[in-house]
Nucleic acid binder design. Structure first.
Length: 599
RNA sequence: GCCCUUGUAGCUCAGCAGGUAGAGCACUUCCUUGGUAAGGAAGAGGUCACCGGUUCAAGUCCGGUCGAGGGCUCCA
């Protein structure tokens, strides 16, 4: 992710913004009756949306790119001018999308891309013109097209996009492109895309036997965890659950379905129904598959009279939920219809609340760090301006607690003013993976709505009823998404404690198999996951196979090793540790496991 | 859901102007017993996603259905 302000003023931003204009010119040259919508720079590139008489093809992309190069070669300068709304409308008389944008500018509050402006900002109608192409735009642009390196430019893809992101409006054709200052930077970027492709969890999931999906026979958005993926999930859950128990959580369980009345009380049938599946009829009563676990935990809370003495409550559950997702958004493990959240609900008194938030944020960071994530960025979302439940004072206190916790934890954060849900403020925590991509995993959310709807209370020191604070949190988020991110982060080369096979013996000849089996048994007895490749392949091919399975330790045994009671250790990073006494190797691996290290 | 692209052996992909399927890897068997990323040979494996249409004849053309990929919106 880039820093917004820095990017806006960078040469790169101007290059991309200008490239978008050049692309629009090229497209209009090819389709004179085409309509243009908006074309902003984005992270790593730019796009422009068009309404054209026919669908674009990949060949069109090449042609457009060539035209762009020709336009750039002429080194036209960009000229800015300001004009009145009436003048602008006359200029863009045959461009209905631009007219709509101008009307937005005229009315105020929207910028040239139709996005809301910060309060108090005064919209000026301006255009930028180069060559024959003039576009409604507030800039900035390069002084002249010579600043765009035609060899550092590439059009990437065509996609459908709705005008103003609204599916009820016209669907446009969007062309994505990328542009850099130097050709080498373009090359590096393209290599990054390749790298991301290599790490694709769907590809690695298949190659490493981790999981599968099968829309035809199983159903879209549903995941089968195969033995190796299942093992990693088991290890993940085992570790996390133990950490929860050691940190004051209670592990609870709840069913997959609940009565419609429960979901009416919780309000889900009101505000979440479009994400819920059709009801199941049981003895004439409607039951719904759960899209969330909170109502069940609330019923647990309500099952007894609660005293102020007993707080806080921390109910944790690996709860499997089902949510309807539109078919087009399903994506591997990252977007599915059935998934298991590492969910928990905290209930606490007002005076405990800041401490509780502090605790949960630190616990969250501890868990994420245990999996090798070191870089975090938090987003604090505050009270939305329109509708929200709960009183001012609650919101302010909760927001303050969240921000204070972020400051104490010393992680960078941004405030998304008014970005909270109607029921409470929240922190979303994103992690950076090994190649710098951001993923959202954790969320810590206040809920002022459910305690109200379920009339939650406890008896305070004063003998009267009080409403508890309720916090909803997921740390890894969902096991499915977390696993997908984990696969991509490590490119399938999991840290040793999570590697499904930690070591594999590679006997050089059949006469070494018995020794390998004996040593393997010894390592297994020490709690390691070890295999023996007794196949008829040559050693070289056995190494290759083990390497492709990303097994951390390859243990080669031949005559020498048998004689010395040793194994020759090759690491998956290519390093050759040479012959090692088995006992020492065992200690080495166990130490790496204990430290959650890798090789 | 919508737009574009796409659907041939477990995997990666060929296949042309319509004439009833091919490679590599993986798998099985046999030979080979070899020191740090592919030893050799043979074999098995596909109603070319599904349904319908055009045709003497369709993996190949047309229509539909389902799925996948890239986006749009939303989100764990």
């Amino acid at each position: 992710m880039f820093k917004q302000a820095d990017y806006l003023n960078s040469p790169l931003y101007k290059i991309r913004h200008s490239a978008a204009h050049v692309m629009a010119q090229a497209v209009l040259e090819m389709f004179p009756t085409g309509k243009i919508a908006i074309g902003p720079p984005i992270e790593d590139g730019f796009y422009y949306d068009f309404d054209l008489p026919r669908a674009l093809t990949p060949e069109d992309l090449k042609a457009i790119e060539n035209r762009m190069r020709n336009i750039i070669k002429k080194r036209h300068t960009f000229a800015r001018r300001e004009l009145s709304a009436a003048e602008a409308k006359a200029l863009f008389a045959d461009q209905p999308y631009k007219i709509e944008l101008i009307e937005g500018l005229e009315a105020g509050g929207l910028d040239d891309n139709g996005n809301p402006l910060p309060a108090g900002e005064h919209p000026v109608i301006s255009t930028f013109k180069h060559d024959t192409f003039e576009d409604l735009c507030k800039g900035p642009h390069v002084e002249n097209l010579g600043k765009i390196n035609p060899r550092a430019l590439k059009l990437l893809s065509i996609a459908g996009a709705y005008w103003r992101g609204d599916e009820h409006r016209q669907q446009l054709q969007r062309i994505y492109g990328t542009a850099w200052e130097k050709p080498e930077e373009l090359k590096i970027y393209l290599r990054r895309l390749e790298e991301a492709k290599k790490r694709d969890h769907r590809k690695l999931g298949k190659e490493l036997g981790l999981f599968s999906t099968d829309a035809d026979n199983l159903g879209g958005g549903l995941v089968l965890w195969h033995p190796k993926g299942g093992l990693i999930r088991h290890l993940t859950e085992e570790f996390c659950k133990n950490e929860h128990l050691a940190n004051g959580y209670d592990m609870v369980y709840s069913p997959h379905i609940g009565k419609s009345t429960l979901w009416e009380t919780s309000g889900h049938l009101g505000f979440y129904k479009e994400n819920m599946y059709s009801p199941i009829d049981i003895d004439g009563q409607e039951y719904y598959l759960k899209p969330m676990n909170c109502p069940f935990h609330i019923l647990m809370y309500k099952s007894e009279r609660r005293s102020y003495r007993d707080f806080p409550f921390r109910f944790a559950e690996w709860g499997t939920v089902y949510r309807y997702e539109r078919s087009g958004v399903l994506h591997g493990l990252l977007r599915v219809r059935g998934f298991t959240q590492d969910d928990a609900h905290h209930f606490c008194r007002q005076d405990q609340m800041p401490e509780e938030i502090d605790f949960v944020l630190n616990f969250c960071l501890h868990i994420l760090r245990s999996f090798g994530f070191e870089t975090f960025k938090a987003y604090l979302s505050t009270q939305p301006p329109e509708k929200s439940v709960g009183d001012e004072q609650q919101w302010r206190a909760a927001e303050a607690a969240l921000e204070a916790a972020l400051q104490r934890a010393d992680i960078p954060y941004e405030i998304d003013e008014g970005g909270g849900a109607f029921y409470g403020p929240k922190i979303d925590l994103k992690i950076n993976d090994a190649i710098g991509r951001e993923w959202q995993l954790s969320t810590i959310q206040f809920d002022f709505n459910l305690p109200e709807r379920f009339d939650l209370n406890y008896i305070g020191q004063d003998g009267r009823e009080h409403r508890p604070y309720m916090v909803h949190r997921a740390l890894l988020g969902s096991m499915e998404r977390f696993f997908g991110v984990l696969v991509e982060h490590f490119a399938g080369a999991f840290p040793v404690w999570l590697s499904p096979v930690q070591a594999i013996f590679i006997p050089i000849a059949d006469r070494h198999i018995a020794y390998a089996e004996k040593m393997a048994a010894q390592l297994r007895a020490a709690g390691l996951r070890v295999e023996v490749d007794a196949g008829s392949d040559r050693m070289g091919n056995k190494i290759r196979k083990a390497q492709k399975q990303k097994i951390p330790y390859m243990l080669i045994v031949g005559d020498k090793e048998v004689e010395d009671g040793a194994v020759s250790v090759r690491l998956r990073n290519g390093q050759d540790l040479g012959p090692q006494p088995v006992a020492e190797l065992q200690a080495l691996i166990l130490d790496t496991v204990a430290k959650k290290g890798t090789v």
